[in-house]
């Protein structure tokens, strides 16, 4: 955790200083804002109670932001995965931020990564993230995420989504082999009771892929499959 705090100081520092100088013009423009969004869901998988969370948020102005993310999974009585990111995010293109910072994993094993990536809205209104993780233990991977809103009504939204990890290294401790190592895809339905609060129900296919799937099977681990997840999404 100390690691995270240091990271946030390192990256938030310049961002906040910048806002300060800009606000010399005062009163208009560039206020410092904060945003926090949390998605959490529950499912029953292989006889276990599984809770997934995915939260992110920022503090900053229009151009410079300190961005944080965390996601993970709790199955049965223990955490399967738990990761945290602290990023400096800079609005470089109209619809995209470039981000750089650090990622720390608590589970399945303790690891640190340098992170570089982009996050924003791609043509055809696709929410898009692409991040590269360069592990301090030498493992390198890419993560790509996309999602899209289909409005059945102005409150009832179907969101097809896709997340995949591509590894450039073999990480036997995590049963990860080179190539596409993981996919998570499906459709999440949400009902926006307000913009800030929506219950969700998702049909999700989550699985290890390729060499990673083979490694998991060899260890006698489950490679994943379909699940129905009920949860909430809220932001403030």
């Amino acid at each position: 955790m100390r690691f995270l705090i240091l990271a946030s100081l390192a990256f938030a520092g310049p961002a906040l200083a910048e806002t300060e100088t800009v606000s010399a013009a005062h009163l208009h423009g560039n206020r410092t804002l904060s945003f926090t969004q949390v998605e959490a869901d529950y499912s029953r998988q292989s006889g276990q109670d599984v809770v997934n969370w995915d939260a992110e948020g920022f503090i900053g102005g229009d151009t410079h932001k300190f961005w944080w993310k965390t996601e993970g999974e709790h199955a049965g009585s223990e955490f399967e995965t738990a990761e945290f990111q602290a990023l400096y995010s800079r609005n470089v293109w109209t619809f995209f931020d470039v981000q750089a910072g650090l990622r720390a994993d608590a589970k399945p094993d303790g690891r640190g990564y340098a992170v570089v990536g982009i996050q924003g809205l791609a043509p055809y209104l696709l929410e898009t993230e692409l991040h590269a993780f360069i592990g301090f233990k030498g493992d390198v991977s890419l993560r790509f995420k996309q999602s899209f809103d289909i409005r059945m009504t102005n409150r009832f939204v179907l969101e097809p989504n896709l997340e995949t990890d591509i590894s450039f290294s073999d990480v036997p401790e995590r049963m990860i082999g080179k190539g596409f190592s993981k996919i998570e895809t499906g459709v999440q339905a949400r009902y926006e009771i307000s913009r800030k609060f929506a219950p969700t129900l998702a049909l999700t296919y989550e699985s290890r892929l390729g060499e990673s799937a083979r490694l998991a099977r060899a260890e006698g681990e489950d490679t994943g499959g379909w699940s129905v997840r009920g949860g909430v999404r809220f932001w403030f």
Binding site: R151, M152, T153
Partner: peptide, 15 residues
């Protein structure tokens, strides 16, 4: 700032 369409409940829908 968080969602520029925050107040638009009249977006075009699939129907």
């Amino acid at each position: 700032k968080a969602d520029s369409g925050y107040y638009n409940w009249n977006k075009r829908t699939f129907p």
